[in-house]
Amino acid sequence: MTEIVFYVLAISAVLSAILCITQKNPVPSALWLVSTMFALAGIYVLLHAQFIAAMQVLVYAGAVMVLFLFVIMLLNLGRDGGSDIKKGPVALVATFLGAALVAALVAVRGTSVAGLADRLNPGVVAGSPLGVVAGGDVQSAASFTNAIGAVAAPMFQTYLVPFEITSVLLLAAAVGAVVLAKRKL
């Protein structure tokens, strides 16, 4: 049952993504991207990441994509006549490269992180920082009933300092966006 739902969601995500990048008008593009994000949110639920799924819908599909649409409307880009999609050899090469990238990424999937590190940098053996990440506290997400608590614990314990720094990042981004967008300060 879970598999069927997963593949339905996966196919809809891929189709939405393809449609997103092939729409002439940016408004439908944005809407198809929202569709992809909803599909991904569903997959997150299947992967027992309910908190992330909620964040996905709230932050991405809600806030970020609304921002995109807002800018598109503001600049009045929706009615633009000409298409900006490249055709011919460029599109072909791009598609081929995309396929090659998928193949390469899928091939990489089978390799463990430590093995990759060893192959990239022979001589640095296990016990390196990469190895520590790979072999961290391995616990199945499914064993936690309290999904939010499971994410909150590492976020506010192990990753407390990075978490606080992201707040500074957000502040800087907000100030920067205002400075850039305003005509005159």
Partner: peptide, 20 residues
Amino acid sequence: LGLYVLVFVVGAVWLLHAVV
């Protein structure tokens, strides 16, 4: 920009290929 990304991806694929 598209051309830059194209070249970049060629390099990325080649690197991944070398790793795998």
